[in-house]
Design a protein around this nucleic acid. Structure first.
Length: 479
RNA sequence: CGGGGUGUGGCUCAGUUUGGCUAGAGCACCUGGUUUGGGACCAGGGGGUCGCAGGUUCGAAUCCUGUCACCCCGACCA
């Protein structure tokens, strides 16, 4: 059976129309639906389950590094939002405003949070007094609203789910350490759980977060060659502390401004998972994040004993903490296979009279469609091993794709040509001037994605202007 | 926010140019039966007032005005 064979007609092939393929997969796998409100999406059970898995795994990792969860209000008074100049300028164009309570006009407009820096700062200024109060590491899981001009499922919606961590530290060094630590948490999570390799690095000033001193990012590469900013971690220095008056008394009885960070990932990660791993048959998910890890599909289920055996398998899997279901509907087996593949079931188990007679079943992994004969007594072990292999192979394939789509450019001609001809990241030296970033964007639509932690000098001069180079930058077209 | 496109049962669409019978098809759904190793088949059945609001007309899915939503391409942003 060829992997290229098309089993379902409803999904546009990636080759034919990549963006259409993406929305087809999202719709056919029933991850989301559009709602009555522009740009707002409904997360359906399967889509929300992916988010719940992301949430529960990340949340544990946050707590391991000393983060506590809180919940902040949905609304921010206009005056509060305006306390930090860069911040308000960055977000003003895309905030939603509440102007009325019932029929009554509010004295002061309330903005629906686009992010909650200002609320956290307003809290921190009251609860931090001494160096003994530090650090404070709070996080919240919530949704935020940004009035987007154009939206796409998971990649950009007007309201989206995320987590935002906000920490306060005594020194700049402590804040920097936390900023990097959380970026590492994200990158490790992406690699180990989502099977997505990330480029870690620092944003240029032009691309950094509104109000941040420095912004770090993890950038993933999508199969269409575009970069997806998948998580960010910001060091605010003492900018917000000064704007909001967050001060503490140090151990020399001196008043000091605090140093802060913030960091977040959103449901956009789901968009990354979909694009990086899925194919023309539909959604493909790494086992660790898949809502359904195993679907048992009985064949000729009306025959004596088939359903019983299928249910016994199901129970064994569930007892072993594997997220397993059974499809005992009266659809044909072929339909069930396609359905399972479309919906991102990591592994399916086929079991019919022939198998039962031979004391076995067939374990099929979603990513390669490889069929593995498995003794009935060894199903749990085989499934676990297959999931491990699948998780690893999916990462390896994504890594190989990423590595093979990074090219170098040492002068502008090479650079422009690379943007046109080689989808993916382009490494190029940069002089540090925003004018070069702007020119590159103007000429090619590519932007600076990040300055990677692993710096290398692949040329002496800026790829754009030819002046002495300061940094190696990953460039690319971005979502 | 600019350019282009599309809105007709749950889905994909035909019908709109040139207004006119009771608005169609395939898929999905329901009932019964036969099936079951890559989207099975037969028979019967239910469901739409044509995105929404106005207008023109004896008559509007079809023409006009407005509006909303979604998709694609740009600019902006996670």
């Amino acid at each position: 059976m060829s992997n290229n064979k098309k089993f379902v007609e409803e999904i546009t092939s990636r080759e034919e129309d990549y963006t259409k393929w993406y929305t087809d997969v999202v719709k056919k796998a029933e991850l989301m639906d559009y709602s009555a409100v522009k740009g707002c999406m409904i997360l359906k059970p399967r889509g929300y389950a992916i988010w719940e898995n992301i949430q529960s795994i990340l949340d544990k990792r946050f707590k391991k590094v000393g983060v506590e969860n809180v919940y902040m209000p949905l609304f921010i008074p206009e005056s509060l939002l305006q306390k930090e100049k860069d911040h308000v300028e960055g977000f003003a164009p895309e905030v939603a405003w509440v102007t009325h309570g019932g029929e009554e006009k509010l004295q002061e407009r309330l903005c629906v949070r686009p992010t909650s820096e200002t609320l956290f700062c307003d809290l921190y200024k009251d609860i931090i007094h001494s160096y003994r109060d530090l650090p404070k590491c709070y996080n919240q899981w919530c949704s935020v609203v940004r009035w987007e001009k154009t939206t796409r499922p998971f990649l950009r919606s007007s309201e989206f789910l995320w987590q935002e961590g906000h920490t306060v530290h005594a020194t700049h060094e402590d804040a920097e350490e936390r900023t990097i630590q959380m970026l590492d948490v994200y990158a490790d999570f992406a690699r180990e759980v989502l099977a997505i390799p990330m480029i870690k690095g620092k944003k240029t000033d032009k691309e950094k977060f509104a109000g941040a001193e420095s912004t770090y990012t993890i950038e993933a590469l999508m199969p269409d060659g575009k970069a997806l900013q998948s998580g960010t971690s910001h060091n605010f220095g003492d900018g917000f502390a000064k704007a909001f008056g967050i001060q503490y008394t140090d151990n020399n009885n001196k008043l000091q401004y605090a140093h802060q960070t913030s960091w977040g990932v959103s449901t956009r990660l789901i968009g990354a998972i979909i694009m990086v791993h899925s194919d023309d048959a539909g959604l493909c998910l790494p086992p660790k994040i898949a809502p359904t890890q195993v679907c048992v599909i009985p064949i000729q289920q009306k025959k004596e004993g088939v359903l019983d055996m299928a249910n016994e398998l199901l129970k064994n899997l569930q007892d072993a903490e594997i997220r397993a279901t059974i499809d005992d509907s009266d659809k044909s087996p072929g339909w069930k296979f396609s359905e399972a593949e479309m919906c991102g079931v990591a592994i399916r188990i086929e079991i019919g009279p022939k198998d039962i007679e031979a004391g076995k079943c067939v374990v099929v992994r979603r990513d390669t469609r490889e069929k593995i004969d498995c003794k009935l007594s060894e199903v749990v072990e085989t499934v676990q091993k297959t999931m491990d292999n699948m998780q690893k192979d999916m990462y390896d394939r994504a890594k190989e794709y990423l590595d093979s789509h990074i090219s170098d450019a040492t002068n502008y001609e090479e650079f422009v040509k690379a943007v046109e001809e080689k989808p993916g990241f382009i490494r190029g030296m940069w002089c540090g001037n925003v004018e070069c970033e702007e020119k590159i964007k103007e000429d090619t639509t590519a932007t600076s994605r990040c300055m990677p932690f692993e710096q290398e000098e692949i040329a002496k001069t800026c790829v754009c202007c030819g002046a002495p180079a300061k940094k190696l930058v990953y460039w690319g077209k971005a979502y």
